[in-house]
């Protein structure tokens, strides 16, 4: 935060974006819609809990995670079934109650469980990976009061990378949004 004293520059490479703070999710949701109508595209919302309708409002379209989860589930199903087949038919064939060695109905519960397990792993680790982890820092943490995004405040950050971004104009626009509490600049940089 050593550079905090000279962020008065109108815009430029030193700026990550402009952040606006709101008191509740409805105000934030309305602000996101309004900001998109204004033509801004590079933005993100930071909230203490998942806000219903936010992904649609941000027009967030990224299907990579669902596909990763699907592939994880598929791998879990195939792997779980194959493991049971290997154990019961190839490696240690035992006659259990006169059932066939390849007793597929009995394989299904465990196959179901491994499907869920690997799909969940794909969901959690895929999410972390797609979010750029392991990553020690993100410029959004340079924003003032951003820690309240995990308590009771709602933030909208319009990023400087947006073609329409203009430090003064964007600040004026955000300050006029209904329900806005503070607007401040977010520096770029990892320190």
């Amino acid at each position: 935060m050593a550079t905090a004293t000279h962020v008065e520059a109108p815009s430029g490479p030193g700026l990550y974006g402009m952040i606006a703070e709101f008191d509740d999710s409805e105000a934030l949701l309305a602000a996101v819609r309004r900001t998109r109508e204004e033509g801004y595209r590079n933005m993100d919302a930071y909230t203490p809990f998942p806000v219903h309708g936010m992904a649609e409002a941000l027009e967030f379209e990224d299907n990579r995670l669902p596909w990763l989860i699907f592939l994880g589930g598929l791998g879990g199903a195939a792997g779980g079934y194959a493991l049971q087949y290997y154990i019961n038919v190839i490696d240690l064939p035992l006659n259990i109650g006169g059932k066939p060695l390849h007793a597929w109905p009995n394989f299904i519960p465990a196959t179901f469980e491994t499907t869920i397990l690997l799909a969940s792993f794909a969901a959690v680790f895929g999410m972390l990976f797609l979010n750029g982890f392991p990553r020690p820092h993100h410029p959004i943490f340079n924003a003032k009061r951003i820690e309240l995004a995990s308590q009771d405040k709602f933030f909208l950050c319009v990023e400087a990378g947006d073609p329409r971004f203009d430090a003064r104009g964007t600040r004026l626009f955000l300050e006029r949004l209904p329900g806005v509490r503070h607007v401040s600049e977010v520096e770029d940089g990892d320190d």
């Binding site: 109650g97 006169g98 059932k99 109905p105 009995n106 299904i108 519960p109």
Partner: peptide
Amino acid sequence: SLSQFLIIWSAN
């Protein structure tokens, strides 16, 4: 459906 089938098939 599977539960019903599985239990009956296993018990035989």
